[in-house]
Amino acid sequence: MSGLLPSDGDVDVGGEGSPRVHLFDDEETEELIGSLSCATAREILSSLHESPATAAELADSVDTSIQNVRHHLGNLEDAELVQLAGTRYSEKGREMKVYAPTDDPFVVCVGGVDDDGAREGIVDAIESFLE
């Protein structure tokens, strides 16, 4: 029997974006590396690359609590590795957020890049490589 509310809503998983280049000593890089330092966070991100999912679905797929998944999703969102892609409704009619990876490639550079001009050169080189 089908419910009144759709259980499988369309989600926007976006397209491949421009590569992000991070210098090793940037605050952004610290947040990025910190968000991926836990195996559970990496499992969540890997699972999202297979298919967009809700926190409850992720908790089942990585065998952890919903609270733990929400914690890691928050960190991954802050690091711009995960995005809110839409909503679904549970069998009980509750609206649930659906998450997906951002799919923006990123590169972390260690040393040798001190100014914005050098950063732009690296971004251009990486973009030409990915085309």
Rank of each mutant, 00 (worst) to 15 (best):
V108A: 03
V21C: 01
D10Q: 14
H71L: 13
H22N: 02
A55I: 06
D115Q: 09
R88L: 06
G117V: 10
V113H: 06
A41Q: 03
C109F: 10
I33G: 00
E31G: 07
N68D: 12
G15C: 06
V82Q: 03
A118K: 12
G111E: 13
L130A: 09
E95I: 09
V82P: 01
T54S: 13
A55F: 04
P52Y: 08
F106P: 06
E30G: 11
V113W: 08
I122W: 06
L5H: 03
E43R: 13
V108R: 05
N75Y: 09
S35Q: 03
P6W: 01
E57F: 03
Q67S: 14
L23G: 05
E80I: 06
S90Q: 00
H22S: 04
S2Q: 12
N75A: 14
P6E: 08
T102Y: 02
C109D: 08
R119I: 10
L73N: 06
N68P: 01
E95T: 10
E127I: 10
D26L: 02
L58I: 05
P101M: 07
L81V: 02
E16T: 12
E80Q: 10
M96Q: 15
G3S: 08
G112Y: 02
Y99S: 06
D104K: 14
L73G: 01
E77M: 11
L36Q: 05
Y89C: 04
E57M: 11
Q83F: 06
T54E: 02
I33V: 14
E80H: 10
R94K: 14
H49T: 12
L81A: 04
E28M: 07
G9T: 00
S61G: 10
T102L: 02
F24I: 12
S47K: 11
L84D: 11
P101A: 15
L45A: 08
S128V: 08
N75R: 15
L32R: 02
F106S: 10
S18Q: 13
R20N: 05
D25Q: 10
T40M: 09
E95Q: 12
K92E: 12
E30C: 09
G15A: 09
E120R: 15
S90T: 08
D114T: 11
V108Q: 08
A125Q: 10
G9F: 04
V110D: 11
G112M: 07
A79N: 02
M96V: 10
V98N: 01
E57Q: 15
P101E: 10
L32G: 00
R94Y: 11
G111D: 12
E77R: 14
V108T: 05
E80C: 09
L84S: 12
D116Q: 15
V69H: 01
D103A: 15
G9H: 01
E131K: 15
D104I: 06
T87R: 10
T102W: 04
E131M: 12
H71S: 11
L23M: 07
R20M: 07
L32E: 02
A59L: 05
G111I: 03
N75T: 09
D104V: 09
S46D: 11
D10K: 12
F106D: 09
G93D: 00
T102C: 06
Y99I: 02
D63K: 12
H71M: 10
D63N: 14
G121V: 11
G34W: 04
V11F: 00
R42P: 00
G93A: 01
